[in-house]
Write a protein that binds this DNA or RNA. Structure first.
Lengths: 358, 358
DNA sequence: ATGAAAGCGCTAACAC
DNA sequence: GTGTTAGCGCTTTCAT
């Protein structure tokens, strides 16, 4: 199992040339340095023959660039980030960059550690969806080209690309209200992250604009996980019996919420309506198909990469807030009592929520 | 925007010490070289003060190890791989390694290119779910520690960790047959990959073992995408009107298939039953909840990393085939004509498939 | 208890 | 057209 590695020096000796010449040919600068065609050919042929592959580490050290971009995200198994990672990978590959991936599991400590690592690796740039709870540790890295995606901090001199979370949440909430819901729970994600805060703000604004009493609504939940969606919904169903609709602030929260609702023998939307932030491919197949606010994931990815490259080129880089879009399916019913027909749950001996008086 | 980078040399000058001493302290070898406690403390303090962070590139060049593992997968936005990536990330982080991620989009060319890149980056090891169509290009990299996950080649001297695809598919098919299905279509993934071939083999074996005529079954489809699931199902529904069950060989294929079935106004499982390879978190929420064959994703990830580290330690490394598990939900009905009740589709003017005679 | 010097593999001034 | 040399930042013999 002999590693068949050949260096430029060895190649040079083999060819009875200097490493310089070999290097020049192999990095495509033969013309520029007027290397004779015969040597150029010979070098290339021999390199191929010996399967020469440049040692990028040495190259990086010399050139002070690594063609590597750090991608730092909170959870690669969340389809939102997985999809984002995919589009980013495509964009970066086009530009000849490789991804150094780090999953922070929503831990600021891991994030900080990771950034130190990436910094040590001399990545050319960083694309980060920060955990979002603290921002100060990011300041140390403002000298490396960095753009924040999804989650961000406005007070940092670091550009960002994200969804218009406020507007998306406002639209979702208004949609619920238009369908005559007023007893609404909002199950939020990681509490102090900006995307969460903006969504909550949008929710709250719509509630206020419509003159709905703050006693009618609930804002609860702790993070973007399935478990949070599940546990919070379970609690809500136990406590707030008059609830008619739930707004989940993330795709995984929605899964957990739907699971809890189902387990409790309730029907969506007959007994309780649900709408979620962040659309995913399978939401048209759930029971029932889920009404959502879709984020422009591909656009976020391409824009983020584009902004990062502007930054690396020393150009001016502007933050971008991209619009979200309501995808209407059938998980929200027009809550207009009295209900037209008894739901299937009566068979299970459960009191259908739709018959509970306001 | 001055990059606050300080090197060991500068630190040494500042401290009026040699780079050697500084290096020794900073790499935790103060004791070993009997550095005086006072200098040790001073060095550490100053390093911290100046936020010294070792240049890993230089370190790598010298040490010939990068603490980086290449992770090569066909599609990071496929939840199977996203989940795999997550568990692998966790395991590698425990061991102080970073991930160089590459998405090959099921292209052997990209895969080959990527491997060259990774090789040039001198990754310590490679975890790869190869595209799986060709294997020869992998031979060039047999000198770097590598383990294949999910897809693999038995003829290569490279260990692998995967699911027992044959058995899983056999169980799924037998399950269908036990429910009295015989007109079954199998929508496959990327045709020549081993995971696909093994699943098809399991399907075929169950068919044969039960004496079902090959004319009753269909094996079609091209790859693991949602689109393939959708298009193939559309075609099947048009052509094979007597079909009673579909076995999809991947989670994304299942999404596409369900979407096509739904679009055609058919009901699962009343009109057509469906079972899928590769369970995902949301499959208990689809309409109806999907019966699946679950792969032990976490185990695949931890085992793969463990085998890779054995390899890197020069130890013997064994391939592993892990068991799959049937998750029974409600997308397969007992196909026992005559049907008990007319389905809802009659309202739409559609002839329910369940009433089509064998 | 500490330092000098060499070298990892590459590229780029600066020769000629 | 091609070669010499130096150096990227680090670690590690070998010295003292």
């Amino acid at each position: 199992m002999e590693p068949p590695v050949i260096t430029i020096k060895e190649l040079a000796k083999l060819l009875d040339l200097s490493p310089t010449t070999v290097s020049r040919v192999l990095s495509g600068n033969a013309k520029k340095y007027r290397i004779s065609e015969s040597t150029e050919k010979l070098v290339k042929k021999t390199a191929k023959q010996y399967q020469y592959e440049p040692n990028q580490i040495a190259r990086n050290l010399r050139l002070k660039e690594t063609n590597t971009i750090g991608l730092v995200i909170p959870d690669i198994s969340n389809l939102f980030f997985a999809n984002l990672a995919r589009i980013i990978e495509i964009e970066l590959r086009k530009r000849g960059k490789l991804i150094l991936l780090s999953d922070t599991h929503d831990s600021s400590d891991l994030e900080n550690e990771t950034l130190m690592f990436l910094f040590g690796r001399k990545v050319d740039g960083i694309l980060i969806a920060p955990v979002g709870l603290t921002s100060e540790h990011l300041r140390r890295f403002t000298h490396v080209p960095m753009v924040m995606i999804d989650r961000y901090f406005t007070k940092l001199p670091i550009p960002y690309v994200s969804t218009n979370n406020f507007e998306g949440a406002y639209v979702a909430t208004q949609y619920l209200i238009n369908k005559n819901h007023s007893k609404i729970a909002c199950i939020q994600g990681l509490v102090n992250t900006i995307s969460n805060k903006e969504r909550v703000r949008g929710f709250q604004k719509a509630i206020d604009d419509n003159g709905i009493s703050s006693e009618d609504i609930r804002i609860c939940g702790t993070d973007f996980s399935i478990e949070n969606g599940y546990n919070t919904t379970k609690k809500l169903l136990k406590q707030a019996s008059s609830l008619t609709a739930i707004f989940t602030l993330g795709n995984q929260i929605a899964i957990g919420a739907m699971r809890a609702i189902k387990e409790n023998g309730l029907k969506i939307p007959e007994d309780i309506s649900i709408i979620s932030f962040d659309d995913q491919a399978y939401f048209d197949l759930t029971c029932p198909p889920l009404t959502t606010i879709r984020q422009p994931i591909d656009l976020i990815g391409t824009e983020a990469v584009s902004v990062l490259f502007d930054l690396m080129d020393g150009k001016q880089a502007e933050s971008k807030i991209l619009p979200a879009k309501l995808i209407e399916r059938s998980s929200v019913k027009d809550f207009n009592p009295p209900s037209r027909s008894a739901s299937a749950d009566e068979k299970n001996g459960l009191i259908p929520r739709s018959s509970i008086p306001k």
